[in-house]
């Protein structure tokens, strides 16, 4: 059963942040609750105060500008992102990621900010956003700051958020020319999180790989970059041998944990297979861009 708590529903972000400043020592922020309510019901999280920021309309937006890139407010639901023509046109990979995130019911209620702040290494958005070189804008009653998503995840279910901070916005830069990003996951049920997931962004210069970002989901305590695999790809042209080498590097550098659903060995194997597949897919799309 869920431990009793005091429920706050602030009307503005300012009010939310001052409530948070006041209760930060014993408080959880809820923004959709699709992850939090599960752990609260399981008794893994018990809090005396719950601050619900889901209805903060000032944080519910999707904007694009050709220099700044994409800005998604924290309270924007997954479904809104999935259905946004703007996102579809400029960052199609986010739409395909959202399409496979849990179920429609969850996407209707869960938010991008809530998802990122939950800090689950198996979450879908983070590896895609990491491949897209995104940043997270966070704020407290005192100040705002922007954290590159590479630095946002600290440890298992632990983010760089201070106790008095909330996620305000996701910022995705404008991709370089000849860039494509792909994402996929291996899951047991369609609505599941990935046993592992891989996001890959490839930028080409002619036929050669100019830049690449590979992000692995659920392959370690946090979402992680497969930097050794990336190094192997830089400056090279596409071949099966190259993909094999990069896939093997990702296989070796990830740190998955075995659980009842899959062994460590199988997870590493899947990281390799999906790294190869996503890099190849992104590479081919970039070459056509």
């Amino acid at each position: 059963m869920i431990h009793d708590f005091t429920y706050f529903r602030p009307g503005t972000a300012k009010e939310a942040l001052s409530l948070l400043a006041e209760h930060k020592d014993d408080c959880k922020v809820i923004c959709g609750g699709q992850s939090l309510l599960i752990v609260m019901r399981q008794g893994l999280v018990a809090t005396d105060n719950l601050i619900d920021i889901k209805r903060l309309e000032e944080l519910n937006y999707i904007k694009f500008d050709s220099t700044e890139g994409l800005r998604i407010g924290a309270t924007t639901t997954h479904r809104t992102i999935e259905k946004s023509p703007l996102v579809k046109e400029k960052y199609g990979v986010l739409v395909s990621m959202e399409n496979r995130l849990a179920s429609i019911q969850v996407r209707n209620w869960g938010t991008i900010g809530g998802n990122l702040a939950h800090g689950d290494a198996a979450g879908d958005p983070a590896p895609v956003l990491m491949a897209l070189n995104a940043s997270v804008k966070v704020g407290s009653a005192q100040k705002e700051r922007v954290i590159p998503i590479d630095d946002f995840y600290v440890d298992l279910f632990e983010t760089a958020l201070e106790q008095d901070e909330i996620v305000l916005e996701v910022q995705v830069p404008v991709p370089a020319p000849k860039t494509a990003t792909c994402y996929s996951k291996f899951n047991l049920l369609s609505s599941d999180q990935g046993i592992i997931s891989v996001g890959a962004s490839v930028t080409l210069d002619g036929n050669a790989c100019k830049a690449v970002r590979i992000a692995l989901g659920n392959a370690a305590a946090t979402v992680m970059r497969a930097k050794k695999a990336e190094e192997i790809l830089i400056g090279k042209t596409l071949s099966d041998a190259l993909l094999e080498e990069a896939g093997q590097a990702a296989h070796d550098e990830c740190e998955p944990v075995a659980d009842i659903h899959a062994s460590e060995e199988y997870r590493r194997h899947l990281v390799k297979v999906f790294t190869k597949r996503m890099v190849k897919q992104a590479w081919e799309q970039a070459s056509k861009a």
Partner: peptide, 10 residues
Amino acid sequence: LDYKLLTAKD
């Protein structure tokens, strides 16, 4: 979450 009962999507 952990008992893999098929859903409508599967």
